[in-house]
């Protein structure tokens, strides 16, 4: 990792939960809509009350890139970044590095692969489900 994420006041607790390997999204107390990333308001009913809900850290591969250009000082090219549609929040696309022996396949089911950096920071990569 060459860039350390800077949590904001909305996302701090999400990162704290990830550090304990709890994959959580927000669920609206009023209408039950789940959402990610962390935001104060439910975009469906525009109310503020919500709670964290732990979900299976699973999704499907929607796309990926194989990066060759050194955009990030210190990164080792080539590396793969995947775009994953979260099963728990189908309207949501998340990103992470690919953790697999082979390239991703279109639409394949993946699971989070936690990459512990230190005590307070864990990153979320993606690996073939059941693999």
């Amino acid at each position: 990792m060459t860039y350390r994420p800077e949590p904001d006041r909305d996302s701090q607790e999400w990162w704290e939960r990830i550090a304990t390997r709890e994959f959580a999204v927000q669920r609206c107390d009023m209408c039950g809509t789940t959402r990610f990333p962390a935001r104060a308001f439910c975009p469906a009913c525009r109310t503020e009350a919500w709670h964290w809900q732990e979900v299976e850290p699973e999704g499907r591969v929607e796309s990926w890139i194989v990066n060759h250009q050194p955009f990030m000082p210190g990164a080792r090219e080539p590396y793969v970044v995947v775009m994953v549609r979260l099963a728990a929040v189908p309207g949501c696309l998340v990103y992470g590095n690919w953790h697999g022996e082979r390239p991703p396949e279109p639409g394949e089911r993946v699971r989070a692969s936690y990459n512990r950096i230190d005590e307070t920071l864990t990153l979320v990569n993606w690996t073939p489900a059941g693999g």
Binding site: M1, T2, Y3, R4, P5, E6, P7, D8, D10, S11, W15, P37, N67, Q69, F71, M72, A75, Y79, V81, V94, Y95, G96, N97, L123, N125
Partner: peptide
């Protein structure tokens, strides 16, 4: 705020 979910994975540039 989106950057925190992308940049740690080397995903930073428009290309």
């Amino acid at each position: 705020p989106e950057v925190q979910y992308q940049a740690p994975y080397g995903y930073v540039a428009p290309p």
